[in-house]
């Protein structure tokens, strides 16, 4: 491959830039989603966003990126609120509530989608690409919209850094100090919804949740500092996004979502196995080392005991 294409070829440049933005934003928020044990929420929300995308398309009659994103955010947000209502007012638990919302919203979205696709004149709307994502279709206006929305999300994250850290670690204490925990809770959840929505077009609703789980899980393995974890998480997300999007744009038959997800999964697996201190390999060698040392000590003691006896 000719790497200068990355900067000169219109499509590839857009694809790479879009994937960079999507990876960075979802990566940064993934760190918080993982720490707040909200990672499954990403799954429910990305599926819940689908009807929003389709309705926005029906209303505006075009595939303009910003209205579709707004539609997705609203639907994802409604899904989140519905989930909170279900959890607080019924006996249904959090995970089941997420399952209910995921299924209902996604089912509704699919029904709407197949209806839209059957309408005459909309064969090329490309809405079905929202299922698994389509990097090659990314144009400059998509990238601009993603960048704008992503920048708002990241700036908000930076502004409320201290507050988000506090509620993520100890929300009861935050409330006692006078911080408005419920509002902050909704705010960070909204940011996670935004991160999901930014990636919908490229990664697709089905697999976008991986970008909310894997970068954070991988980053946690390498550091014990929150700032570094968020940075690393954004880096992993961006790396996976760009690599995956470029691979898939080279061959239009490859849907982007699955390729990006394969890359981030590889990063997460390597991190889970080989990271120092937290990695499985490290733990395993540590355990072996300990056992060896104990055995040596035991043996030395036995020898000493025998010498003493004789």
């Amino acid at each position: 491959m000719d790497w200068t294409l990355l900067f000169t070829d219109y499509t590839i440049r857009n694809v790479a830039l879009g994937a960079l933005v999507l990876g960075m934003v979802s990566g940064a928020l993934s760190a918080f989603a993982v720490l707040r044990k909200q990672s499954l929420l990403g799954d429910a929300m990305s599926h819940a966003a689908l009807p929003g995308v389709v309705i926005a398309f029906i209303v505006t009659g075009a595939r303009a990126p910003l209205p579709l994103m707004i539609g997705a955010v609203i639907a994802g947000w409604l899904g989140t609120l519905a989930m909170i209502v279900i959890r607080t007012h019924t006996r249904i638990k959090e995970d089941s509530a997420q399952g209910v919302i995921l299924a209902v919203f996604f089912g509704f979205g699919m029904a709407l989608l197949s209806w839209v696709i059957r309408q005459p004149g909309s064969e090329h709307s490309g809405l079905d690409k929202f299922l698994f994502g389509q990097a090659a279709a990314t144009v400059a206006s998509d990238v601009a919209a993603m960048t704008l929305v992503g920048a708002v999300a990241l700036i908000t994250l930076a502004l409320f850094w201290k507050e988000f850290k506090l509620i993520s670690f100890d929300s009861g204490y935050a409330a006692a100090l006078g911080f408005r925990v419920r509002a902050l809770d909704i705010l960070i959840t909204t940011l996670i919804v935004i991160a999901v929505v930014i990636g919908l077009q490229m990664v697709g609703v089905v697999l976008m949740s991986a970008m909310i789980v894997a970068p954070g899980v991988a980053a946690r393995q390498w550091t014990n500092r929150l700032g570094l974890m968020v940075g690393l998480s954004a880096l992993f997300g961006a790396l996976a996004g760009v690599t995956g999007a470029i691979i898939s744009s080279l061959d239009n038959a490859l849907p982007t979502g699955p390729v990006i997800v394969l890359v981030i999964t590889a990063i997460a697996l390597v991190s889970l196995f080989f990271a120092p201190e937290r990695g499985l390999a490290w733990e395993w060698t540590q355990r072996r080392e300990n056992r060896r040392r104990l055995r040596a000590r035991l043996q030395a003691e036995h020898v000493a005991a025998k010498e003493f006896a004789s």
Partner: peptide, 20 residues
């Protein structure tokens, strides 16, 4: 009530006492 696997050090937690 909290998860002590949160990625930070003791000093950082104690500084939270000043956040109010």
């Amino acid at each position: 009530t909290v998860d002590w696997d949160f990625p930070t050090n003791a000093l950082d937690i104690v500084m939270m006492g000043r956040y109010g």
